[in-house]
């Protein structure tokens, strides 16, 4: 068993009085493609966002590639640790969140140049390589406004990859897309997975989970209720709530 890239221990998260994550523990080994599914409000996005501290965990420990951040770390040390964790993680958002005032290429080199202090030439070479691999190099001088949703999301994936992260976090990457544009994004994600990237994907795309994931986690009311391979999960779901999810997916497919 390879060492876990992401290790979450006894994570709790409250929004005010609302208990959205309840004592969640999870280990994600290197090169694993993990899909997090569950109904909306189940806490799956919050769990993902706790990994790179876009949400502050209330209790528990987040560990990414050996960098351990207990929730009660404070001040300067905490800021440094969170910064280190963010350098190890790449994130893709539901709403793409490309920078509208920068061209595609500028979007992709922004992280390496500003954050890592990489030389511009080197960053551009790396960015162009990644844009090529998501099939967006031909739009490198366009502004995001002129791209379709699927194209924006592919650029966003290239932007995250160009930071050379150890793990990629996808937060419902196809939920804001028109149905006919979902395929191109899923194909790029498949490609990234095939290149050996560790991926944690919050998604409603059961098809993607079944086809690409090594492991599927089901969340409900802030807890992980099922942890299985896609085959096990789709053929033999254990929990009733998982069965309901799978049935809904099956009926949608039929």
């Amino acid at each position: 068993m390879p060492l876990p890239i992401v290790k979450i221990s006894n994570l709790d998260k409250y929004f005010g009085r609302l208990h959205v994550l309840k004592d969640v523990s999870l280990e994600v080994p290197e090169r694993q493609v993990l899909c997090l599914i569950g109904r909306s409000g189940s806490g799956k996005s919050t769990l993902l966002r706790c990994i790179n501290f876009l949400e502050e965990p209330s209790h528990g420990i987040i560990e990414v590639d050996g960098i351990k951040v207990p929730a009660d770390t404070k001040g300067k040390e905490r800021r440094q640790l969170i910064h280190d964790v963010r350098l190890k993680t790449g994130m893709v958002f539901q709403e793409f969140n490309l920078f509208p005032h920068m061209t595609v290429l500028e979007n992709v080199i922004e992280g390496p140049v500003t954050v890592k202090g990489m030389e511009k030439d080197k960053a551009i070479a790396l960015a162009e390589q990644n844009l090529d691999s998501v099939g967006m190099l031909f739009k490198k001088d366009e502004y995001p406004m002129r791209l379709s949703g699927g194209q924006k999301q592919r650029v966003a994936i290239a932007r995250a990859l160009t930071m050379e992260p150890r793990v990629m976090l996808f937060d419902e990457p196809t939920s804001a897309l028109d149905p006919e544009l979902i395929g191109e994004v899923l194909n790029v994600m498949k490609k990234v997975a095939n290149e050996g990237m560790t991926m944690i994907v919050v998604t409603h795309e059961m098809g993607f989970a079944r086809e690409v994931a090594d492991r599927v986690l089901v969340m409900s009311e802030g807890q992980l209720i099922e942890d299985a391979t896609p085959t096990e999960l789709f053929n033999n779901p254990k929990d009733d709530r998982t069965k309901a999810l799978i049935d809904r997916y099956r009926s949608g497919e039929a």
Binding site: H83, R86, G90, M91, N97, R159, A160
Partner: peptide, 17 residues
Amino acid sequence: GRGQREAAMALGMTPGQ
């Protein structure tokens, strides 16, 4: 939008950057 700040933070930018 909040997403812009989050995207920058996820890239590892400091609040000043």
